[in-house]
């Protein structure tokens, strides 16, 4: 997919009035996360990495967002959402049980663990999970559809879009405090916002994005 916001890097605003000190601290901590497990086992961590590559597939031409590390960090801090459906275990237990169940489903369907499957088979299993069609005993009382929507895909999507690399891809302005925005109408861009490629003119957008700051 061609880059819609060529050269845009939200981090170029890190030392501008768009980022207050608290934001710098928070994002610096996030960027400093190493891609290794603290809560999950090595096997679980590898499995989350493989699943995340299906839910939020990333291009090969840039350093990947460490989704599994972000999930592991969430689990390590036991950072829940404030509710769970009846039958759903708390955060950490739900993840552990869901990962076990997904591998059990992969074994039952293909006689191999999930991360050994072809991507098409992985996607098929994830689709069945989303539709609530996976019912192996390993799920316990947990609905596979609820696990997908409230836990697995929910946490993966939140982890990915917590990362500046993902913000660049969608052309979001990113942190904005104390400097917010001035130009509010449609098609109006503040100089510290991403420029989108217009009429195929990649270089014009790149030029504008180089000056974002």
């Amino acid at each position: 997919m061609p880059d819609r916001f060529p050269g845009y890097d939200v981090l170029s605003k890190r030392w501008t009035p768009s980022w207050n000190q608290k934001t710098r601290e928070v994002i610096n901590r996030r960027l400093a996360l190493t891609n290794e497990p603290r809560y999950l086992t090595a096997e679980e961590f590898a499995l989350v990495t493989v699943i995340a590559a299906r839910i939020v597939p990333q291009p090969g031409h840039r350093p990947p967002v460490p989704v599994a590390a972000l999930i592991d960090h969430q689990l390590d801090r036991d950072q829940g959402d404030g509710y769970r459906h009846a039958g759903m275990p708390p955060l950490q237990e739900a993840w552990r049980q869901g990962l076990r169940a997904l591998n059990a489903e992969a074994q039952a369907a293909h006689e191999a663990p999930f991360d050994q499957l072809r991507t098409a088979d992985q996607d098929a299993l994830l689709t069945q999970m989303q539709e609530g069609k996976l019912k192996d005993a390993a799920w316990g009382g947990m609905s596979s559809a609820t696990f997908f929507k409230q836990r697995l895909a929910h946490d993966i999507v939140h982890a990915y879009y917590a990362h500046p690399t993902a913000w660049n891809e969608i052309g979001w302005g990113g942190p904005a405090s104390p400097r917010g925005y001035v130009r509010m109408d449609a098609n109006e861009r503040d100089p510290w916002e991403a420029a989108e490629v217009k009429d195929g003119d990649v270089e014009a957008a790149r030029r504008k994005n180089r000056h974002v700051g």
């Binding site: 994002i27 404030g82 509710y83 459906h85 942190p175 405090s177």
Partner: peptide
């Protein structure tokens, strides 16, 4: 306060609650 969705979940009531019924509420 950071300009950051994840960090600012610290404003929400994220203690455990159970939801059920035909249309379970999303809390938090």
């Amino acid at each position: 306060f950071a300009s950051d969705e994840s960090e600012q979940t610290k404003l929400y009531w994220t203690d455990d609650r159970i939801v059920d019924g035909e249309n379970p509420l999303q809390m938090g």
